Computed example of a mutant assay.
Amino acid sequence: MDVEDAGMTPTTAPVTIRTDRLVLRTYRPGDHQDLLTFYGRSDVCRYLFNEPWSPDDAREAVQTRMSRRDLRAGAVALVVEYEGRVVGSVSAWLVDESGTLSTPSAPPKSGGHSRPTSAAEDSRRKL
């Protein structure tokens, strides 16, 4: 695993975490396009806390999540990349004195492989 972040603290998200299978990284402005391919689907969002996203919803969510980089400030939000595409997301936030990871969402085309779940496990070790 290779972490690319100078001056990382235990509660600050690294810019990039590379594992043998995938990449976890902070949000970037163009991520809304990949995220919309699954967060825009009602069959995916049925199990989440939100309705399917519109293109505007996706852009707004990415803009908000780009600032979530430090648990001391309330939350860390990362995307999961596989083969150069965003295939999921992972969030962590403080609950009392401990960190809790949200349930990652996996797009239907992940072929039964829960890459976001693997990402959650990898990020838990780093956060």
Rank of each mutant, 00 (worst) to 15 (best):
R65T: 00
R65K: 14
R65L: 11
R65V: 05
M66D: 03
M66L: 02
M66R: 06
M66C: 02
S67K: 08
S67Y: 02
R68P: 01
R68H: 13
R69P: 01
R69F: 00
R69S: 01
D70I: 05
D70E: 12
D70F: 06
L71M: 09
L71Q: 10
L71V: 06
L71S: 04
R72P: 00
R72M: 12
R72K: 14
A73L: 12
A73R: 13
A73G: 08
G74L: 11
G74F: 03
G74P: 05
A75K: 05
A75D: 08
A75R: 05
V76D: 08
V76H: 08
A77K: 05
A77T: 01
A77G: 03
L78I: 09
L78Y: 09
L78A: 15
L78W: 13
L78M: 15
V79W: 06
V79Q: 03
V79H: 01
E81T: 03
E81D: 12
E83L: 10
E83F: 04
E83D: 12
G84V: 02
G84D: 07
G84R: 09
G84Y: 02
G84E: 03
V86E: 00
V87C: 01
G88E: 09
G88N: 07
S89T: 13
S89D: 15
S89V: 09
S89P: 06
S89G: 14
V90W: 00
V90T: 08
V90C: 10
S91N: 11
S91T: 12
A92M: 11
A92G: 06
W93I: 03
L94N: 10
L94Q: 12
L94I: 12
L94M: 15
L94A: 09
L94F: 01
V95Y: 05
V95W: 08
V95C: 00
D96R: 14
D96G: 13
E97K: 04
E97Q: 10
E97D: 12
S98N: 08
S98P: 00
G99F: 06
G99S: 13
G99N: 04
T100K: 05
T100P: 00
T100D: 10
S102H: 04
S102D: 13
S102Q: 05
S102T: 02
T103P: 00
T103Q: 10
T103Y: 07
T103N: 04
P104K: 02
P104N: 03
P104L: 03
P104T: 01
P104M: 01
P104W: 04
S105I: 12
S105K: 01
S105N: 10
A106Q: 11
A106I: 05
P107I: 07
P107R: 14
P108E: 13
P108R: 06
P108N: 07
P108H: 03
K109C: 10
K109F: 13
K109E: 14
S110H: 10
S110I: 07
S110L: 14
G111I: 02
G112Y: 06
G112C: 04
G112F: 02
H113N: 14
H113P: 01
H113A: 11
S114H: 12
S114V: 12
S114I: 09
R115Q: 07
R115I: 15
P116A: 02
P116E: 11
T117L: 12
T117I: 06
S118M: 15
S118Y: 11
